[in-house]
């Protein structure tokens, strides 16, 4: 037992995280900044895993270190702006520095009031959370407490978060999507940016052809096994989306769009949210409250507790579908500049 209340390894990682954040923001090459930011996310995910938040770490590894780096890179690729040309005036930066320092000082002044790190009797840990830990097995037979809280106890939260992802996807469509028919009469198409074509590389193509089926199989396992191990609809959906994004990068956008047309993509993004909401409505038809899966026991196998377990699975599948296809749709929009023809 160490006398320090915090693990030394954590201290090292926390300092590294700050270093990565500073480097990501001060490096002049924007592509480099994107990659360092990916490394930052990965360090962050190690810290969270160390604090026992395995599901969060899993999500961050898939989302922060994976997909969001791809989004930044595809934006940069499309615009060709890889180097930051100049920086602002020193006086302006100093002024902002003072403002930020004051804000930070206020936050730091609240620090002594915090309960000690790792205390299990702090208000956050002692009030609501024990109920979930004590009752999850009896209520729904789901050993992974995070999954049961996510999809059952706090199902409304997750439903609306999934809706936010759906709305963000629609927003990106309305911002970027350009209709080709309109383009011909209107302004001329933007000059093509000089680009590196990964589809030319035999190694990239063959390696991704080999990897994609395993990624998808793993993602399906993550969704289906989310009750018993870290994972669930969000993580599995992001990995499924990433596998198709990998195909789009290593071959080209056209071959992806041949399999999944634009219309299919958008319909499936909506279908995931619809499945989630429909499960909730079904509960109401069976006489319960919205998203009270226990009342599905007459159409799902098992007693009330197993019905809740199956209800969680149905909902997680809905989340997975929405997250998967919205990640793909966002990537296609960003990578092809809304033209849906060719891109990263």
């Amino acid at each position: 037992m160490s006398t320090l209340p915090i693990w030394q390894f954590d201290v090292l990682l926390l300092i590294l995280v700050v270093l990565f954040a500073v480097v990501a923001l001060s490096i002049r090459n924007l592509m480099g900044a994107a990659v360092v930011f990916g490394a930052y996310s990965f360090m962050m995910c190690l810290i969270w895993a160390g604090m026992g938040a395995v599901d969060v770490a899993f999500t961050e590894a898939a989302v922060g270190a994976g997909v969001s780096t791809v989004f930044v890179v595809s934006t940069l690729y499309n615009t060709g702006a890889t180097v930051q040309p100049r920086t602002g005036g020193l006086a302006f930066k100093l002024f902002i520095g003072v403002v930020v320092t004051i804000a930070g000082a206020f936050l730091l002044s609240a620090l002594p009031d915090f309960p000690e790190w790792g205390a299990s009797d702090s208000p956050v840990n002692a009030k609501v959370a024990p109920y979930y830990i004590l009752n999850t097995i009896a209520d729904s037979h789901v050993p992974n407490v995070v999954t049961s809280v996510l999809a059952d106890y706090r199902g409304f939260d997750t439903l609306l978060e999934t809706t936010v992802v759906f709305i963000a996807c629609i927003a990106i469509y309305s911002i970027l999507r350009i209709d080709k028919a309109k383009l011909e009469v209107g302004e001329p198409a933007a000059a093509p940016v000089p680009r590196y074509d990964p589809g030319d590389s035999l190694i990239v193509r063959q390696a991704s052809r080999f990897m994609v089926p395993f990624m998808q199989l793993f993602a399906l396992y993550v969704i289906a096994h989310g009750h018993y191990s870290p994972g669930g609809g969000f993580q599995g959906g992001v990995i499924l989306g990433a596998s198709l994004i990998l195909l789009a990068i290593s071959f080209d956008l056209k071959s992806l769009l041949r399999q999944w047309s634009e219309k299919t993509l958008m319909l499936l993004v909506a279908a995931g949210v619809f499945l989630y909401a429909a499960v909730g409505l079904a509960c109401m038809f069976m006489g319960g409250n919205y998203l009270d899966y226990g009342f599905l026991d007459s159409i799902l196998p098992g007693e009330k507790d197993m019905a809740r377990s199956h209800g969680i699975l149905l909902v997680e599948i809905g989340v997975g579908i929405t997250v998967m296809f919205s990640m793909i749709a966002i990537h296609i929009n960003l990578a092809s500049n809304g033209r849906f023809d060719r891109g990263l």
Binding site: M51, G52, A53, D55, V56, T59, E60, V63, G64, V67, S68, F71, V72, T75, S120, D121, V124, N125, V128, A129, P130, Y132, I133, L134, V145, V146, V149, L150, R154, D157, T158, E161, V164, V165, A168, C169, A171, I172, I175, L176, F234, V238, V323, S326, M327, I330, N333, L334
Partner: peptide, 29 residues
């Protein structure tokens, strides 16, 4: 209960990460 990490804060942040990447996408767009 003190031997099991708090699941509540974890699920709040899990969804926040996925929503975060969606909003990052909007910002980049």
């Amino acid at each position: 209960v003190s031997k099991v990490a708090n699941p509540l804060t974890q699920i709040l942040m899990l969804t926040a990460i996925v929503v975060g990447v969606a909003t990052l996408g909007v910002a980049l767009a």
